[in-house]
Amino acid sequence: MLCQKCGKNNATTHIKTVINGKVTEQSLCGYCAAKQGYTGFSAGPISNILASMLGQTIQVSAGISSHSCGCCGATFADVAETGKVGCAECYREFGAELLPYLKRIHGGVRHTGKVPGTKQLVIKEETGSVSELKAKLASLVAAEKYEEAAVVRDEIKKMEGK
């Protein structure tokens, strides 16, 4: 396929742009693509991609970026430039600007995972060897803790059965 711009060279770069939901596609040669500013497609870290995504909003709507976070002092320009948010409060301050991008990254904007404080720290003891368990069983029987002993006995049976 030849370049749609110059019609001379082979098209090596395929560009798809979506503006207000309208999709336009172009196939260009390397030279014409570079002339239009489409260079350096190497996939950088995701935060860079994000920074460039956020950066676009600033150009589109320069008005939004003027206010700053009352807590850490970051402006939306800072957030857009680095792709990193200044503090927890920034999510409230710049919520309107950030939400569309969170949706683009994650697909959804409603947390469905863990709510803080829902589990207690109890580290399970690793199950020991059969001989260790037998020793434990003996000590439980000696202490007349028969219910606990029964659990250990079943565990030993299970391990020996394997």
Binding site: S47, K84, A88, H111
Partner: peptide
């Protein structure tokens, strides 16, 4: 006391980690 929002979950410096 971790930063947490009812809608957005755990808040992180990079928006790619927000939520869980």
């Amino acid at each position: 006391g971790f930063a947490y929002d009812n809608q957005l979950g755990f808040l992180t410096e990079c928006p790619t980690n927000i939520g869980t």
